[in-house]
């Protein structure tokens, strides 16, 4: 083996280290800009219609429950929001949901693993942004949707196709940075 190929071989560790370092730098930058998130997991439902389900209404809410068929043919885009009264981040996102609801964006709520009385008290205290309100007490429909924690919010266009999913509270940044552009695009 010649000296030059020996040289090349001994450059390999440096090359690998530099490539790794560049990758790590990309990740760290991505964490800052939001393009790299070590925790977020994408939904498999993006670009697809919701799975089949039919959920009863939350008792005493005066709202109607809903089924998958009702999400297929809509007059305009809809947000589907999984929430629970015991979920702390749900309190954080509630003002944003209220704002959207006041602006006329339909939010269909699915109350997850909750007691109807607690859920009702939560809405009485923080306001009720939901156009329709179903209840998934066993949490099985949530699993069919691939929900892995509350709150989760899905954006469904007028054809009934899921375009976007947010796992975690809808903060003002998410509202302005993601939801408003989506509403404009799929209006």
């Amino acid at each position: 083996m010649s000296l030059t190929s020996r040289r090349a071989l001994m450059l390999a560790p440096l090359g690998l280290a530099v490539a790794g370092g560049a990758g790590f730098y990309g990740m760290l930058r991505g964490i800052g800009t939001g393009s790299y998130d070590p925790r977020g997991v994408p939904s498999v439902l993006i670009g697809r219609t919701p799975p089949d389900f039919a959920l009863p209404p939350l008792p005493d809410s005066g709202k109607s429950g809903f089924a998958a068929a009702e999400l297929r043919d809509l007059p305009g885009p809809v947000l589907v929001n999984y929430w629970a009264s015991w979920c702390v981040p749900c309190i954080i996102e509630h003002p944003q949901l209220m704002r959207l609801s006041r602006e006329g964006v339909p939010i269909w709520g699915i109350n997850y693993k909750d007691k109807p009385r607690d859920a009702g008290a939560f809405l009485a205290r923080h306001g009720d942004p939901f156009a329709r309100l179903a209840m998934d007490e066993p949490g099985r429909v949530a699993i069919d949707w691939g929900v892995y924690g509350v709150p989760e919010t899905y954006f469904i266009d007028r054809q009934g196709i899921i375009r976007w999913r947010w796992a975690g509270p809808v903060t003002p940044e998410v509202l302005d940075g993601d939801i408003r552009p989506l509403l404009r695009r799929y209006a």
């Binding site: 450059l11 560790p13 440096l14 280290a17 530099v18 370092g21 790590f24 730098y25 760290l28």
Partner: peptide, 16 residues
Amino acid sequence: LGLLVFYIGGAFALFA
């Protein structure tokens, strides 16, 4: 990461 690149990258460069 800067320290890592400096020590490990530097050492590997010296090695090469």
